[in-house]
């Protein structure tokens, strides 16, 4: 039992597979298929997390899925998740109403390198639902704004109808110390903003490469393009961070589903230093 002896004392009452029940406070639609759940612990136990970490969120009898924590890390009494309904479990989550309970395990995984980024410029690039894991990082950056250099956020989504967190954007836009750019794949009618893919915005940024940390989140294919553009801007691969998605059943390194070669995405990730996995990403079906 050599390995067991070295363990922190893990007992049944802290069994990582046992979920907590959290009460739904609000379920607000963001777009036609995306919604934001606000949850609270019925016993008012604060929920502490690091931006970029995720929870396993589930409904009894249906199933549970990994979802990034999307709220403000400085408001630990509320647990916020923004979720796109794409299948059985996320659809069931979309239908929950205030007062109902959902199951939560977490927070798990490693988040964004906000410590490491202190004293540096920060570029955040994300697409679609990839904004969800980014929002807590933005809250943190803005809350401790003087610890960072120039901060820019580039966000791309499909159409105007798919824009998440519009009201927040208004606020971010008015800040002089935060550059926020939005682009749409397709802009129609009254849309006056950027049209095109998010990588176009990167080439227009004036990046002080040796002094910049980039954080990237979106679909794997999109992230590859984003990373290439950042590297084209002379960013070192060790200064780029990306958040990976894999099937997850446990979230704690026990079920094997999330393996990415020698790492478990739930444990080493979901946020990785790009240079650590750069050689793995081009391999198909790894």
């Amino acid at each position: 039992m050599a390995h067991i002896a070295e363990l922190p004392n893990v007992l049944n009452d802290s069994d990582p597979m046992i979920p907590r029940l959290m009460r739904v406070v609000k379920n607000r639609p963001e777009t036609s298929n995306t919604f934001t759940l606000t949850l609270e612990d019925p016993d008012r136990i604060p929920f502490k997390f690091e931006p970029g970490q995720f929870n396993m969120v589930g409904i009894a009898g249906v199933g549970e899925v990994p979802v990034s924590v999307c709220g403000d890390p400085d408001s630990p009494m509320l647990v916020v998740h923004t979720i796109r309904a794409v299948g059985a479990i996320t659809d069931a989550l979309r239908r929950v109403v205030p007062g109902q309970f959902v199951m939560v395990r977490g927070p798990y995984g490693h988040g964004w390198p906000l410590r490491e980024a202190e004293g540096h410029d920060v570029v955040i690039v994300c697409g679609g639902i990839g904004l969800a894991p980014m929002r807590p990082a933005v809250y943190r950056l803005l809350q401790a704004r003087d610890r960072y250099g120039k901060c820019a956020m580039l966000y791309g989504t499909r159409t105007e109808k798919d824009i998440l967190f519009k009201r927040e954007f208004m606020r971010w836009r008015t800040r002089k110390d935060f550059r926020f750019e939005l682009t749409l794949d397709r802009g129609r009618g009254v849309w006056r903003g950027n049209v095109g893919v998010v990588t176009d915005l990167i080439s227009r940024l004036d990046v002080d490469a040796p002094n910049t940390i980039a954080m990237v989140c979106g679909y794997e294919m999109m992230m590859r393009f984003i990373v290439s553009s950042l590297i084209a801007q002379k960013l070192d691969p060790s200064r780029i961070f990306i958040s990976m998605e894999r099937n997850m059943k446990c979230g704690v390194g026990l079920c094997g589903h999330c393996q990415l070669r020698g790492t478990f995405v739930c444990r080493s990730g979901p946020v990785y230093r790009y240079s650590d996995i750069a050689s793995l990403l081009p391999v198909r079906e790894l």
Partner: peptide
């Protein structure tokens, strides 16, 4: 099952 930060109880 028992050597990581979370163990299978």
């Amino acid at each position: 099952c028992a050597g990581g930060c979370y163990a299978d109880s």
